[in-house]
């Protein structure tokens, strides 16, 4: 059991990458987050994935609509603060009934050091749900695979925005050298 836990704790970015491949996700829109850095590297190295680094996260919401119109599945990777940037653009998913899976690494959530991260981090789930997004949380590394799979399935099978919030308990808090 211990080895399984250790493996999930370190390998969850690989698990997500494998799920993106399994569900044929071809467009990966992102604003970088340290929590997603390993996954981002894997996606960039994959010639069958179009990785688009955004100026701001709501661009990715609009892009997922375009990708779906053109027959390619997309995903949006971002930090919890980026969810706030997406609010109005998520109306596109509700209006057009577009699959829009989002994988959100949390800040301002568990053991946060930076007070500026807290307001948006605490509001992330509420804001997403207010805009009609189905939200799953993963607060243990071993739960990430099942949660992300549920988020992808729910988006592509039922045509709507969905999200997995990956808790800061898994990612850890950035302490700027002040542990």
């Amino acid at each position: 059991m211990v080895s399984t836990t250790t493996s999930a704790a370190t390998d969850w970015p690989e698990t997500i990458y494998a799920l993106l491949k399994q569900y044929n996700v071809r467009q990966v829109a992102l604003v970088p987050d340290a929590g997603h850095s390993r996954l981002i590297k894997r996606c960039i190295a994959d010639n069958d994935m179009n990785v688009v680094t955004l100026t701001t996260e709501e661009e990715g919401v609009a892009m997922m609509l375009g990708g779906w119109l053109g027959g390619q599945r997309g995903v949006l990777l971002m930090q919890s603060s980026g969810v706030g940037n997406c609010i109005n653009m998520l109306s596109l998913g509700a209006l057009h009934r577009t699959p829009m899976p989002m994988l959100v690494t949390m800040r301002g959530d568990y053991g946060e050091f930076n007070p500026a991260q807290v307001p948006m981090g605490q509001a992330t789930q509420t804001v997403l749900e207010a805009m009609g997004t189905l939200v799953n949380r993963a607060d243990k590394a071993e739960d990430i695979g099942a949660s992300v799979e549920a988020t992808l399935k729910f988006a592509f099978n039922t045509y709507r925005p969905t999200a997995t919030l990956i808790g800061q308990r898994i990612i850890g808090a950035k302490t700027f050298g002040k542990d």
């Binding site: 467009q27 609009a62 892009m63 375009g66 119109l69 390619q72």
Partner: peptide, 10 residues
């Protein structure tokens, strides 16, 4: 950005 998504897919 919607245009970009379509253009990449098609």
């Amino acid at each position: 950005m919607i245009g970009l998504g379509i253009a990449l897919a098609q």
